Amino acid sequence: GTEIELESKNGQREHYTATSEDEARKIIEKAVRRGIKRIELRGASEQLIRDMQEIAKQIGLQYRTDGSL
């Protein structure tokens, strides 16, 4: 699965493990709508990382991946 670590603007951290790319995408989209400061992805697919970079650029988000592409 993909591990997703979120940090909201007030510094609250949340951790999710998505079993599918679809689920990961839903978690990320929800977080973005809620207003999130930072997202870290571990074990994400190349496609998901590309999507994440696109989203991050659009809304000026900090993100990090573990680089295991």
Results as ranks from 00 to 15, higher is better:
D22T: 07
T17V: 13
K37N: 08
R25K: 07
Y16H: 07
I27M: 04
Y16D: 00
V32E: 01
A56H: 04
E46V: 10
M52D: 00
E3L: 11
G60C: 15
R13V: 13
M52E: 00
I55S: 01
G35R: 04
E21L: 11
Q58R: 10
I59Y: 15
Y63T: 05
A18S: 10
A44K: 01
L69T: 07
E7M: 08
E54H: 06
A31Y: 06
G1L: 15
T65V: 15
K30M: 14
I55F: 14
D66K: 03
A31H: 05
R13A: 05
H15I: 13
E29F: 11
G67Y: 03
A44G: 05
K57S: 10
H15V: 14
E54M: 08
L69K: 04
G60H: 06
A18H: 08
Q62E: 15
R25G: 01
E23M: 05
T2V: 14
N10G: 09
L61D: 05
I4G: 00
Y16E: 01
M52S: 02
I59M: 14
K37V: 12
E54I: 10
Q62F: 10
K57W: 10
M52K: 00
S20K: 03
I27V: 04
T17P: 03
R64Q: 15
D66Y: 02
Q47P: 03
I39G: 00
T19D: 12
L48G: 00
R13Q: 08
I36N: 01
S8Y: 15
R33P: 02
Q62V: 15
E23A: 07
I49V: 08
I27S: 01
G43D: 06
S68K: 06
S8V: 11
I39T: 00
I27W: 07
G1E: 11
A24H: 00
R50T: 07
Q12I: 10
R50L: 11
R34W: 05
A24I: 06
D22F: 08
L6H: 01
R38F: 15
E14H: 10
E21Q: 06
Q53M: 11
R50W: 08
E23C: 07
K26N: 10
S45W: 03
I4F: 02
I27T: 01
S68L: 12
G60W: 07
T19K: 11
Q53P: 03
Y16Q: 02
E40P: 00
S45D: 03
K30A: 14
N10K: 05
S45Y: 01
Q12A: 08
I59D: 05
Y16I: 08
R38E: 04
R64I: 15
V32G: 01
G11S: 03
E40C: 15
Q53A: 11
T19M: 12
L61V: 08
G35N: 06
T2D: 02
L61W: 09
I59L: 15
G67S: 05
S45G: 05
R38C: 13
A56M: 06
M52P: 00
Q47I: 06
G11P: 01
I36S: 03
D51F: 15
D66F: 03
E5P: 00
E3P: 02
E5D: 12
L41T: 04
R50F: 11
Q53Y: 13
I59V: 14
I28P: 00
E7D: 04
E40W: 15
Q12T: 12
Q53W: 11
G60L: 08
T65H: 14
T17A: 07
A44R: 02
I28R: 00
E7F: 12
I49F: 06
Q12W: 11
L61T: 04
E7S: 05
Q53S: 11
R42M: 06
T2S: 03
K57E: 12
G35W: 04
R33T: 08
E7H: 10
N10P: 03
A31L: 08
S8D: 14
A31P: 00
K57M: 09
V32N: 00
D22E: 11
D22H: 11
A18I: 08
Q58W: 06
N10Q: 05
S45Q: 02
G60D: 11
A24Q: 00
E21F: 05
R25Q: 01
S45C: 05
S8F: 15
E3G: 05
R34F: 05
L48S: 01
G67I: 07
R25M: 08
A24R: 00
L6V: 15
R34T: 09
S68C: 15
G60A: 06
G11Y: 01
M52Y: 04
G67L: 09
Q62G: 07
S20W: 02
Q12F: 14
Q58T: 11
Y63V: 15
Q12E: 14
G67M: 06
I59N: 15
R13C: 11
E54A: 11
D22N: 05
L6A: 02
R42E: 05
L61H: 04
E21H: 04
Y16V: 04
G1Q: 12
A31I: 04
L69N: 09
G60E: 12
A18W: 08
E7G: 02
T2P: 09
A18P: 10
K37H: 11
K57Q: 10
Q47Y: 05
I27K: 01
S68R: 03
A31M: 05
A56Y: 05
T65L: 05
R34L: 08
G11M: 02
S20L: 03
A24V: 09
L61A: 08
G1I: 15
R50D: 04
I49T: 05
Q12M: 10
E5L: 13
R64K: 13
I49P: 00
L48W: 02
L61I: 09
E14M: 11
A44E: 01
S68Y: 10
L69P: 11
Q53G: 06
V32T: 03
A44F: 06
N10A: 11
E5H: 12
I36Q: 01
K30Y: 12
D51G: 04
I36D: 06
R38G: 05
E21K: 02
L69Q: 07
Q62K: 10
S20T: 12
A18D: 08
Y16A: 02
A18V: 13
H15Y: 13
E21C: 06
S45I: 02
L41G: 01
D51C: 07
I55G: 00
D66R: 01
E54D: 10
N10M: 09
A44I: 02
R42V: 08
E46G: 07
L41C: 03
A44L: 02
E7L: 15
K26E: 12
R25V: 06
E5Y: 13
D22A: 14
G35S: 04
R25L: 10
A24Y: 02
D51P: 00
E14C: 14
R13I: 13
S20F: 03
I59F: 15
D51W: 15
N10S: 12
K37I: 14
Q53K: 11
G1F: 13
E29K: 07
S45L: 03
E40S: 13
G67E: 12
S8R: 12
T19Y: 13
Y63N: 07
G43P: 09
R42K: 11
R42G: 04
S8C: 14
L61M: 06
I39M: 06
K30I: 12
I4V: 04
E14S: 07
G35Q: 04
A31Q: 03
N10R: 06
G11D: 03
G60I: 07
K30D: 14
E54L: 07
E23H: 05
A18R: 02
S20P: 02
A18G: 04
E14N: 05
A56P: 01
E54W: 07
Q53H: 12
I4N: 01
R33A: 12
E46T: 08
